[in-house]
């Protein structure tokens, strides 16, 4: 099948199989920041933005992407770099496999949460699993990054 969509600001015609999900398509088209950690929509590694909101690309059907805007971390270089500095300053990226998806959620959260608290941040990020870090270092980084009191 074929359709036209926008990825990271560029219009593109995608070729894909009928039951294909966006994570697979994006990786095939070279957006290798998109990782997959499960087959069930449980881990958050595959998070990208669909029309600006974080979604699981493993659960988003590619066939539905006509006239939508998809954003991966490749398009958010400056912002991602900024947040990355906070994260690595805490050592909170370990194997790093969860990090791009996690960062996509964090960057969306920064736009969405008007008055972030530790509690609302934890709630917003609950769908991003990390087996390495124990989460606490991630929170230390976010608190500094977002200037949470």
């Amino acid at each position: 099948m074929q359709l036209e969509t926008t990825i990271n600001g560029n219009k593109i015609v995608l070729d894909f199989a009928g039951g294909e999900f966006l994570a697979e398509t994006l990786r095939r088209y070279g957006y290798l920041s998109v990782k997959e950690g499960c087959d069930t929509g449980s881990c958050g590694l595959c998070t990208v933005w669909l029309d600006g909101a974080p979604v699981l690309s493993c659960t988003t059907l590619t066939a539905r992407m006509e006239d939508h805007e998809i954003t991966t971390i490749e398009a958010l270089n400056v912002e991602a770099e900024e947040f990355a500095q906070f994260l690595v300053a805490e050592g909170a990226e370990q194997c790093g496999f969860c990090a791009p998806g996690f960062t996509m959620t964090v960057l969306a959260m920064r736009r969405e949460l008007k008055h972030p608290t530790v509690e609302s941040i934890n709630h917003y990020l609950a769908g991003n699993l990390c087996r390495c870090s124990g989460y606490k270092g991630q929170m230390r980084a976010i608190v500094k990054y977002m200037g949470v009191e």
Partner: peptide, 22 residues
């Protein structure tokens, strides 16, 4: 010292680095 990991920023930004990426 609290030294950041030398591959950290690249991994966070999703630079291709794992088996399936390479």
């Amino acid at each position: 010292k609290r030294i950041p990991k030398i591959d950290g920023v690249g991994l966070v930004k999703g630079v291709p680095a794992y088996t399936s990426d390479l």
